[in-house]
Design a protein around this nucleic acid. Structure first.
Lengths: 217, 217, 217, 217
DNA sequence: TGATAACCGAGACGGTACGTCCTGTCTTGAG
DNA sequence: CTCAAGACAGGACGTACCGTCTCGGTTATCA
């Protein structure tokens, strides 16, 4: 509630500058990597004074976070528009739920395949990997990354697993927040740390292993 | 193998400086964090010329990597010595295998509980998290981190799971390298990204879920 | 004469703002020095928008110049009022002439002693020194300073010396504009450049040296 | 004596950088003026890191002061060399005394004419005016300017006037330090403040007025 | 008696320079 | 040759002001 700094007046903010800064930040991170991207460089590329960046963002990570969220929002909107063109009215912003066809394994495989696509799309990969790395190194950034990028997606899995529990497809006693990690975390770790390549086959296998366990039946 | 630079003469290297640099690097990373740790700072704290660092290491991450490996080796040696005092001669450096009591679930839970202890020990946590973050941001560092810190540990799980397959405790058709991720990666992600707290209960649960699957039997 | 910019309408100018800007400028210059006085600082102290300053003045030096002239006018008015209270009506603004008692040496010593007083009065010293310095550095400012602050005073000496020439107290062939510099410039230089302290004794000595020369008679 | 900062090691100082900085500072001040000359600009023009300037000098004025002193020394050396070529051995650095031909007026006029030449030489005029202005605005700089540039020259006049007093050409009771100001300060003020042009005629007149006084004989 | 045009406070904006910090290279003198 | 020490060219940091601009909000004539 309380203002800590001279509090800039958001209503007079330059929309043009904001968009130019987002674009410059994403371009530079993609071209040169996060470490070689500088506030000065973003300002220069965006044709903006440095102070305009420092006025509205607290750090390089903060700029990139918002730029990435903006990119994700716009992309989601486009995807939704295309889907709406095909399937009828659905003006909802944000993806609110995982598919539920009744076949849990198939639904999870579908979603994870889409995640693989996204993780391998260079427009998303470079900035989101940079944000993840910065979030690991800096706890404050980490909280933001988890709260705004990671946890919302994970909650969709929680909901889908709860539905599966109600349908009798998942043991009723287990914790969905832990269960989802069995197939999500392995993918995340392979992608983040390059421990091994990721593919549709791999995520399909993860779902099978997780649903039916490692021990023989 | 091949030397690219004027090749420093390793036989004349100052052992004292090397140890002082390791100590300074670990102290500074723990005190101030990786980002605020600088080569100049390490040199000053170690009472060493900057060139001595640049002569033997290629980057801040490289210094910290070796310092951390050295710390881990020394700690492992001490642990081994204590174990040897109790159980007889065992001069082997490095832990070569996971325990195999015949009870796979119990063995995995034991090892994961030890991992939790290590991940929460501040002497290890700060530098290894820094290395992980740097490894995500910088692919070259990432390869080193995976090859020297991560993969060796994972291979121990592969071996234990193969033994379990031979014993009939794990389905014979599944890939151990993927299987191990069901309980290792969730722990890794929670620790790396602070998505949720880690505990003995949590790792025990992971083992149960992974071995017996999410679907009802 | 001709206006180059959108020509502000002087009749609608805010008198309150003008006075607040003068006060703020003089205060800040006195407190912090000319270099650390900024347009933003003056605006903030005066509770005025920056544009109000840029609308009416062309530079920091310009603001200070007017503020100083205003201060000098007001002070002269007060002095004149006091004198008028004692000696009868004299509503004239500005001091029009040096005293002429018939004793040139005494008159000059009196005026120079008053000048010493003014040069050592902190309310005048700081801003006028700042203006002098800026006038030396910047030729445009210099012209203003000389025309508005310096030359008017010097002309009073010219007039008094001309009277002395007519009275036979000064050689008739010499140039009064040069002659006055013999006692005025030394005082100016000592004050401006702190080459040596200034005092009544010093200015008295200057008058004696200048009137009667260095060579023996 | 006591070191206040990490004290750079002067013996390892780069002579090349020092000379490049002097040259760049003088060039920029002459081309663009003191106010538009920046430390960054000097560093860039000299092909030098900014830190190299901040390591050895405390301010822009300090750089320019040393650069100007260096220029003056070198010029004096060249002049002395030329004089020595004509008149025999005279390896003395610095001009130690004013000429003394026995004719005080002639000697003073000669020296003041040389001063006029120097004050109008653009290589000297721009930087020395800048230093004078900065010295008026900033007391610390002012002390340096007076001690290193101004007072040494004035002391030469003191010596010449003392000799004249011994020779009976100047009244024995007067203070040479004040006396010299009668012809030096007017020239200084005209030059500094552009109150009027300076010329040989003008300085000749000053000497005459000062020696023989304003009052009729 | 509104309209309309200015000045006004406020402050965001594109820029420039500041003085500091650190990088990775190079140089010096001691061992 | 290594080493401690640290000067060097370079470049990014985050801050402070510059001078311009735009935004509502008062005035203060004119229609």
């Amino acid at each position: 509630m309380a203002a800590t700094k001279p509090t800039p007046d958001a209503s007079r903010r330059s929309e043009k500058s904001r968009r130019a800064i987002y674009a410059a930040a994403l371009e530079l991170v993609t071209e040169a990597g996060y470490a070689r991207t500088t506030i000065e460089g973003i300002a220069a590329r965006a044709g903006v004074g440095k102070q305009t960046i420092y006025r509205w963002w607290s750090s390089k990570a903060d700029v990139l976070m918002e730029a990435y969220l903006d990119l994700a929002d716009q992309t989601a909107e486009q995807t939704a528009d295309q889907a709406a063109d095909q399937a009828g009215a659905d003006p909802a912003p944000g993806n609110y739920a995982l598919p539920d066809t009744g076949d849990l394994a198939a639904d999870l495989k579908l979603v994870l395949r889409a995640t693989v696509d996204e993780l391998l799309d260079p427009r998303f990969e470079v900035p989101s990997r940079a944000l993840a790395a910065e979030g690991i190194a800096d706890a404050a950034v980490g909280r933001e990354v988890v709260a705004k990028l990671l946890e919302p997606s994970l909650q969709l899995y929680v909901q889908r697993l709860r539905a599966a529990q109600r349908a009798g497809d998942v043991r009723p006693d287990l914790d969905p927040r832990i269960a989802l990690e069995l197939f999500v975390s392995p993918l995340a770790q392979r992608w983040l740390q390059h421990t091994a390549p990721i593919s549709y086959d791999y995520t399909d296998t993860l779902v099978d292993y997780a649903l039916y366990g490692l021990a023989p039946r």
